[in-house]
Amino acid sequence: MSRSWSPRPRRRYAPQPPRSLWRRLFDYCLTIVLLGLLILLAARLDRFETREAAGAAIVNDGDSITLGATRIRMRGIDAPEYQQTCRRDGADYACGKLARQSLVQLIGGRPVSCSGWQQDRYGRLLGDCKAGGVDLNRAQVEAGWAVAYGDFEAEEAGARAGKAGIWAGTFDEPQDWRDAHGRGLVERKHGTLASIGDALREFFRFR
């Protein structure tokens, strides 16, 4: 049986009518708005540029150092304040000074490098710091001379279980001690949620 074949009719394309004046104006405005948003985005992203500092460290206390002209608050940890005391074996001891001494020993006279993009309420760089390949933020918590403050919770759990550093006795959380002694502003934690909040504030800050 033979099949009959017939060519498909060609579809005719009618030319598109020219866009109206208002449509052209809308397209131009939309293009300008999108271009402006791209420029704004590029300018805002500069605010998240990572800052780096390196050199010989001046150790201020158990979680803050100075590198040259850059003051650095170590991110994600909170050490006892320098004047803070804790209690062990029924007696008070200078845990703040021992926390500073621990950081000095971890650095061991080696150059320190820190990086970060956030700042704390005092304008200090919130930094992740290393000395000779040692992660100083993590090591301070592991040694029991700083508590987790938005990060390093697993390291804190290990120090607590091993009764390392301040975990060998009792102590006030450093933030609670600062509050009780009128030492500065309440400091928010430095974890992931805080970083997201900081990023949003920086992006929408118009100054």
Results as ranks from 00 to 15, higher is better:
L34P: 06
F171D: 10
K97A: 14
D135C: 03
E49I: 14
R71V: 02
D63A: 06
E187T: 13
D61R: 00
P7Q: 11
I107A: 03
L106K: 00
G182N: 13
G127W: 02
F26S: 09
G184L: 10
R8Y: 12
A164D: 03
Q84G: 14
P7M: 09
G62A: 11
G55H: 03
A168G: 15
R8F: 14
K97C: 02
L37D: 15
R3D: 13
D120T: 05
P18D: 12
A14V: 10
G109L: 08
V186H: 15
A43I: 13
E49P: 03
P17G: 14
G123I: 12
V147I: 11
Y122H: 11
E156K: 00
N60G: 08
D120E: 04
T70A: 06
Y13K: 00
R8N: 12
I77Y: 02
R178N: 06
K130Q: 12
V104S: 00
G36T: 05
G68S: 12
S20F: 00
A146W: 00
Q175Y: 05
P18M: 08
E156N: 05
P111C: 11
E142S: 08
P7S: 09
G127R: 03
R201S: 15
D92W: 05
S113N: 06
S4D: 04
T66S: 11
L106P: 00
C129R: 01
V134F: 00
G169W: 09
F204N: 12
K163P: 02
H190L: 14
L25Q: 02
S6R: 04
A79I: 05
S20I: 08
L30P: 00
G132F: 01
K97R: 09
Q140N: 11
I32A: 14
P111T: 09
M74Q: 09
K97P: 00
M74W: 10
